[in-house]
Every structure is written in C-alpha cells, then in structure tokens.
Design a protein around this nucleic acid. Structure first.
Lengths: 73, 73
DNA sequence: GTTTTGGTTATCATAAATGATAAAATAAGT
DNA sequence: ACTTATTTTATCATTTATGATAACCAAAAC
C-alpha cells in the first residue's frame, strides 16, 4: 500500500462519510456533479486519483468547501 | 472562461504564491515532488487540472496542508 | 418472492494529466 | 555585455481518470 493508494482510500472514505451524513445516494450526488455513478462508486472505494475539478464539484454538491472535503488528507 | 478553467487558474496562482513565499524555485519543488518542472510550470499557469495526488505532493513539499493549499478554491 | 433502491464491478473508448525532452524567453547578478 | 538561474513553451508518448453502458449484488419494502 503506497502513499497514492492511501490517499485515494482516504478521499474515498471522506466523500462517503459526508455524503451519508446528508443521506444523499451515490446516484444523486453523481447526477448533480455530472459524473458517472460508477465513477463515483470507484472513487469512494479508493479506486481513483480524482482531479481537482472532480473534487470541487463533489464538495459543492455536498454543501461543503473544498477545504472541508480534503481535511486531514 | 468556464468553471474548470477558473479553478485551474486559481490553484495555479495559489501554488505559485506559496512557493514564492518560501523562495523555492519551480525546479526544486518539482524535483521534491517527483514531477516534471514543465508540468509544474503548466500547473501554475492554470493549464492543467491536477489530480489529488499531485496536489498532495505539492502541499507536502511546500510545507502546508492540503486544506491550506486549496483554501478559497 | 419479487419489485425497488442503492451500490458494486466490469469493459471499452475517449479525454486529459503526466513523463520526458528540448528549445526559447526572462530575470538577476557580476 | 555576458553568464547564470529560472521560467515558459512546445512536442510527443504514456498513463490514467473519466464517460458510457451493462450486468450483477445486497438489502429493504411491499
């Protein structure tokens, strides 16, 4: 498990946590962000190294700032 | 100028500002991050949509947290 | 038990970030 | 002016995130 993989897992968990806190399904969040739901699923599972723009859209639609999204990463 | 481009310009300026605050040349930062100096140049100019891992390496080597790096974006 | 609902996994194509290298431009210092 | 350091720009190959679609799994509802 390298740094990159750890980071991917961490951001994935963070997104999942914030999303579940507001009871928003993956598909809803994905739709709002204009990303594929399968893509979001992989992201939350730590399977991708998302770009800044993807993270920004997720933060916006979760109602948090980008800082809050990447906290402790 | 769309949202993505604005975001790229914003992160670029932020990296540049933080880097210059500690008087670190692009090439030094790039070397520490194991990224190409040309790549960093483009990033600071707003020409790329960097991945989370790239941003994390940059934050680490600038001596700031990821939150601090993406502040106000 | 069979519909929903939410989530996962798989595959392939496409777009784009990055690696690698080189050349040109700019600034700073001597 | 000349040198040196720094940055920018360009190009091409490679890697990878994402788009798009489909099939599958799990749990809860009914």
């Amino acid at each position: 498990m390298n740094d990159k993989e750890k980071l991917q897992l961490a951001i994935g968990k963070r997104v999942k946590l914030l999303r579940e806190e507001i009871n928003m399904p993956q598909q809803d969040l994905a739709a709002k962000c204009n990303i594929e739901k399968s893509n979001l699923s992989r992201l939350e599972a730590g399977g991708t190294n998302p770009t800044l723009y993807t993270l920004k859209k997720i933060a916006d639609n979760l109602g948090v700032s980008l800082e809050e999204l990447v906290i402790k990463l």
